[in-house]
C-alpha cells in the first residue's frame, strides 16, 4: 500500500518536473511583454493587468522576465549537470576499474578540490576568468564533477569483483563491454538519484553566482540575477524579490522532492 502511494506520488512529481521543463521552453510565448524593454513611466509599479507581477527599477515586466529566466536557469542547470555527470562518471569509472596509483592520483585531486569551500572556489575562478555565463559553467563544473567521480568510483569498486563480472569476462566480454553492459546498468540508479537531488542545489548555485553578479550578466533575465538587482528595493517594492524568489523556491522544491521519491522508488530497501 505504502509502496503504491509512493509510486503515485513519484509519478506525480515526475509529471510536475517535466511540465516545468517543458513550460520553461514554451514560456516566452506566454510572456505579455518583452523582458528587456524598459518603460520609464511604469518604474517599480505594483502588479497591474499589464504587468501581472509588477515592474522593476527600470520598468521591465517582472512576469515576463521570470518566464524568460526559467529557460536560462533550467537549460544551464541541465547542461552543467550533464557535463559533470558524464565527466565524473568516466573519471570515477577509470579510477575504480584500474585502481592502484591511477586511483590514488585521481582521488587526491578530488580531495584537493573538495577541501575548498565550493562557492568560494567558484567565486575565485569566475573572478579570475571574468564574469559571464561560460565562466560560471566552467567554475561550477570544476567543482561538481568530483562528487560524481567519487560516487561512481565507489559504486564501481563495490561491484567490479562480483561473480557476474567474472561470468561476463568468461563470456568473452572486452573491458569496455563489461563496463557498459555489466557495470553501468548496475550502478546507474544511485547516480540518477544523486543527479535528481542535485538539480535543486545546482540551480541555487547558479542563482547564487548570478546574485553575486558573476553569473548571467544583466540585462539578460535570470532568477538569481533578478534577486540581485531587486535587492535595493526590498522595503519599497518587495515584488521585485518575492516573485523570482518564489520561482526558485518552487522549482528547487519540486526537483528536490522528485530526487527523494526517486530514491525510494529505485531502491527497494527504502520502502
Amino acid at each position: 500500500m505504502m509502496k503504491k502511494i509512493k509510486r503515485i506520488f513519484f509519478l506525480f512529481m515526475l509529471c510536475l518536473a517535466f511540465s516545468i521543463i517543458i513550460f520553461s521552453f514554451i514560456a516566452p510565448k506566454f510572456a505579455p511583454n518583452d523582458p528587456l524593454v524598459t518603460d520609464f513611466q511604469n518604474v517599480l509599479r505594483e502588479p497591474t493587468d499589464k504587468y501581472p507581477f509588477g515592474t522593476d527599477q527600470v520598468g521591465r515586466c517582472i512576469y515576463s522576465r521570470i518566464l524568460y529566466g526559467a529557460k536560462t536557469t533550467l537549460s544551464i542547470t541541465f547542461l552543467l549537470l550533464g557535463l559533470v555527470f558524464l565527466f565524473g562518471l568516466i573519471i570515477g569509472t577509470i579510477a575504480g576499474m584500474i585502481g592502484g596509483k591511477v586511483d590514488t592520483a585521481i582521488m587526491r585531486i578530488t580531495d584537493i578540490i573538495l577541501s575548498f569551500p565550493d562557492m568560494v572556489l567558484a567565486i575565485a575562478v569566475v573572478g579570475m576568468l571574468g564574469p559571464g555565463l561560460v565562466n560560471t559553467v566552467l567554475a561550477l563544473s570544476l567543482i561538481w564533477w568530483t562528487k560524481y567521480a567519487r560516487l561512481s568510483r565507489v559504486l564501481v569498486m563495490s561491484i567490479k569483483n562480483r561473480e557476474y563480472i567474472d561470468a561476463g569476462r568468461m563470456a568473452g566480454g572486452s573491458p569496455l563491454k563489461l563496463i557498459t553492459r555489466y557495470i553501468f546498468p548496475n550502478i546507474i540508479s544511485p547516480l540518477v538519484v544523486q543527479l535528481a537531488i542535485d538539480i535543486g542545489s545546482m540551480m541555487l548555485a547558479i542563482a547564487g553566482l548570478s546574485f553575486l553578479g558573476l553569473g548571467v550578466q544583466p540585462p539578460a533575465p535570470e532568477w538569481g540575477n533578478m534577486l540581485n538587482e531587486g535587492r535595493a528595493y526590498m522595503q519599497t517594492a518587495p515584488w521585485l524579490l518575492i516573485y523570482p524568489g518564489m520561482a526558485i523556491f518552487i522549482v528547487v522544491c519540486v526537483f528536490n522532492v522528485l530526487g527523494d521519491t526517486l530514491r525510494d522508488v529505485l531502491d527497494p530497501k527504502h520502502i
Partner: peptide, 28 residues
C-alpha cells in the same frame, strides 16, 4: 574461454541483476 567455462557456486550472483536471461545466454 571458448574452450574453458565455469559454473559458479551461487547461481544468483552469476547473473547481473539488470540483464535478462535471454541476454545473459546470448552474450558468449
Amino acid at each position: 574461454y571458448k574452450n574453458v567455462q565455469m559454473v559458479f557456486q551461487d547461481p544468483l550472483s552469476t547473473f547481473s541483476p539488470r540483464m535478462k536471461i535471454g541476454d545473459y545466454l546470448m552474450e558468449p
